[in-house]
Design a protein around this nucleic acid. Structure first.
Lengths: 133, 133
DNA sequence: GCGTTTTTGACAATCAATTTCATTGTCGGC
DNA sequence: GCCGACAATGAAATTGATTGTCAAAAACGC
């Protein structure tokens, strides 16, 4: 669609994964996405799901989250750099931005002589709905 | 609800792991620590190393880092909440603090109605030494 | 010492993720 | 439209860190 690495071919599996990611809310594991594809009647191998997710992540089209003690979760997110506020209980997520944090991280890294800087940041908590129950 | 530290027994394996962590620099995986113990002549099972590291982490005595695509790394860190600036190439780490970030994370979470908030933050980059080579 | 309770550790099990490799599908060129 | 090179696929096998099992050993209180 958008990204074209030159050697990438346009297969129905790739389109299926990409399209699925566009139509679901929240984060899902590769295995969940694989099941969803099966439920939709698409036959896409689990291997291909992993590979496609990886290439999409490399291309920056999806976000990967690594929750403590769980499998990798993937989600199509709004473009641009942002972070996630995640409910420990129900898994619902909110995208948050913190320009100040970005700057701080870059400044700190630079101060210590580090270059080519990136960072990961996730906020975990219990959301209102889950807190009540 | 919290771990009952009153029933913990003082075994030589527990002491060996704890002592080892006090004498090594940087982050190490459970398997590395297990090898080091063997080199030291201590006989401690890998299972026990994992269990001990887990309980130490639960007690807040060591920090756990989960680098992308790697195993869990453990390190005895200075007390108190802090984050890490990690070199992608050589793995060297710098402890950094960012009170402003802590506050920001808490505020953002609170604003969205989240309670019991925690967060993870790691900064990755290439350190001066590795940048040159 | 003695009995109780925790801890240990060799091995098996788990499970996400990756690799393998023969087969299939794409796509540019004709 | 057809061909052929080559990327892509996918089922099964593999990997590798981590966890579970459970009998035996160690620590602690008395």
């Amino acid at each position: 669609m958008t990204s074209d690495a030159g050697t990438l071919r346009n297969t129905h599996q790739r389109r299926a994964v990409s399209s699925l990611l566009g139509s679901v809310e929240g984060f899902h594991s590769a295995q969940e996405l694989h099941s969803m594809l099966r439920d939709r009647g698409e036959r896409v191998g689990l291997t291909t799901v992993y590979r496609t997710l990886q290439s999409l992540a490399d291309a920056g089209e999806i976000d990967v989250m690594r929750p403590p003690g769980g499998e990798h979760l993937y989600r199509r997110c709004s473009q641009g750099h942002h972070h996630h506020l995640v409910c420990r209980s129900c898994g619902s997520t909110v995208e948050v931005e913190g320009p100040a944090v970005e700057n701080w991280a870059d400044r700190v890294a630079e101060k210590h002589g580090f270059t080519d800087v990136s960072h990961t940041l996730e906020i975990f908590g219990t959301c209102q709905g889950c807190c009540r129950s």
